[in-house]
């Protein structure tokens, strides 16, 4: 059948394969899920960064995004729900040579792991956190979460969400993150650049990616198929660098302010600890 596809060359390998655990592909993510695209951007950023890949460690929590660590051909840790950041903290302090990146979802990082998130930001722990926000718990089939917009429907908010959501960049900035950016999964080039900047940052850096969950969140909220949902997020987004993240709330069907909100320098936990002890 393959030869019937017109003008395509059929290959066995992809240029990013060396950074992937090919024996685990295809991944578990649904067709049209933004996670695969985010992972591609991450791999692309890694290829452009001049890092010793043997020293790059990925730590994930639990959930759809939590599976990211398992697809990258790097040292990867798939920890317990919400505990990726404290586990990553131990890794970084145990061996400061490591470049530790946490890739996890909004439910994992903001609900069950919310306390760890704010404290790692407060300490300015030298970690990069990539938070993929799909506004619901996808792995358990679409329940309401800490970032679900007010009024949005999910399987556990069937009458509409009665809670106010977290504004992730605002939370990160308020608690001390030194680099904060937000993009949608369709802003691939900008996302890649932000990931490069975040990983080059000494200190706690956060990149939030708004990503479609066509299977659950999109369906509950009548957002059409994966493509339409992806397009809607992109169309509703407004790039406003350096904007006050307090103004970057996300409402159901409303605009999504994206961009690089915070980029500053301050001493990390390790810097201050070293200074204090000497």
């Amino acid at each position: 059948m393959a030869e019937e596809l017109t003008n395509l060359l059929i290959s066995e390998h992809h240029p990013m394969d060396s950074l992937l655990r090919q024996d685990r592909l295809p991944h578990i993510w649904c067709s049209g899920c933004g996670l695969g695209t985010v992972l591609t951007c991450f791999v692309s950023a890694l290829q452009k960064l001049e890092l010793d890949l043997n020293k790059v460690v990925i730590v994930s929590g639990i959930g759809c995004t939590g599976r990211a660590a398992g697809y990258l051909n790097l040292d990867g840790f798939h920890t317990t729900h919400g505990r990726a950041i404290p586990f990553a903290t131990g890794l970084k302090l145990g061996n400061p040579e490591l470049k530790v990146v946490v890739i996890s979802g909004d439910g994992d990082l903001m609900a069950i792991g919310g306390n760890h998130f704010i404290h790692a930001a407060r300490r300015n722990m030298d970690l990069t956190v990539l938070c993929v926000n799909n506004f619901n718990y996808g792995m358990t089939s679409g329940q309401v979460g800490p970032t679900t917009p007010t009024d949005a429907r999910t399987s556990t908010s069937p009458y509409g969400n009665a809670e106010h959501p977290f504004n992730v960049p605002y939370l990160a900035a308020a608690t001390g993150a030194t680099y904060v950016a937000r993009w949608t999964a369709l802003h691939v080039r900008r996302l890649e650049r932000s990931l490069i900047e975040a990983m080059n940052k000494r200190g706690f850096s956060l990149v939030e990616v708004i990503s479609p969950c066509p299977t659950y969140y999109g369906r509950w909220n009548k957002m059409g198929d994966a493509l339409e949902q992806m397009k809607q997020y992109h169309d509703h987004s407004i790039i406003r660098h350096r904007t006050d993240p307090a103004e970057a709330d996300i409402s159901l069907g409303g605009e999504i302010i994206v961009g690089r909100f915070v980029d500053e320098d301050k001493p990390t936990f390790c810097d201050l600890q070293r200074e204090a002890v000497q």
């Binding site: 840790f77 131990g90 145990g94 061996n95 306390n115």
Partner: peptide, 21 residues
């Protein structure tokens, strides 16, 4: 490091062990 709670404490200990400590 004084962590934010005991859940984080043992998570950090596991992480540090995997860093070779």
């Amino acid at each position: 490091i004084q962590m934010e709670d005991e859940i984080a404490s043992i998570a950090a200990v596991l992480g540090a062990s995997w860093a070779g400590q």
